[in-house]
């Protein structure tokens, strides 16, 4: 069956979102049809405003509605430390912890030649420039613990180490509160590798 044009167009838009196929798109589109007009308008405005009102911080490239972002602008934060992450989502995860008081740098990706991403295609040159201009003593590399994240981390460490800035990597191993017996062999062997003396 052919959908009326406006419904078909809305479905196409929904399908551009991650994880949404034709069936979910149809369900969502028909749901919108049943919504109150005010709610639909609010929804549409919310969509436009994330795009219009949010930009990326010119210093750390985290999403923000002010430039520089609230974190970069906060004078109470420790400016000698930068935590390097792949995504803005990672900053939010780190901030939830409320333990880290340093600054951030969002790369927006990791080096992955297969996906056409080299070191210049992410905000890596920016990071190096920041290190020259700012008084940074430690770089905490918190890229994802997969092949691309590891390659990016090692690359950063090779470039930064000679400048005398301390470069550290987040530890990987056992999750807190987990049972040892349920950990898979690979995680366990990583945990053994990264063991610490009491």
């Amino acid at each position: 069956m052919q959908y009326p044009q406006p419904i078909a167009k809305l479905m196409d838009s929904f399908m551009r979102l991650p994880g949404i196929g034709p069936k979910t798109a149809a369900r969502l589109a028909f749901h919108v049809l049943d919504m109150k007009e005010d709610d639909v308008l609010d929804f549409a405005r919310a969509l436009v405003s994330v795009k219009r009102e949010l930009t990326y911080c010119s210093v750390c490239h985290h999403i923000t509605d002010t430039d520089p972002c609230r974190i970069c602008d906060d004078s109470s934060r420790d400016r000698s430390m930068i935590c390097v992450v792949e995504q803005s989502k990672d900053v939010i995860a780190m901030e939830k912890m409320k333990e880290y008081t340093g600054l951030y740098h969002v790369l927006h990706g990791a080096v992955s030649p297969v996906d056409g991403i080299g070191p210049e295609d992410i905000y890596l040159p920016d990071l190096l420039k920041r290190l020259q201009d700012e008084e940074v003593q430690e770089l905490i590399v918190a890229t994802d613990p997969n092949i691309e994240g590891e390659a990016t981390a090692m690359y950063i460490s090779r470039l930064v180490k000679p400048t005398g800035i301390r470069v550290t990597r987040l530890a990987h191993g056992l999750p807190v509160g987990g049972d040892l017996e349920y950990a898979d062999e690979v995680t366990l062997s990583k945990a053994i590798e990264g063991r610490r003396e009491f």
Partner: peptide
Amino acid sequence: RRDSDDAMLDVMTGQ
């Protein structure tokens, strides 16, 4: 298509 960057190749060789 890339600048000849020994550091990146070294990293990948290491991996």
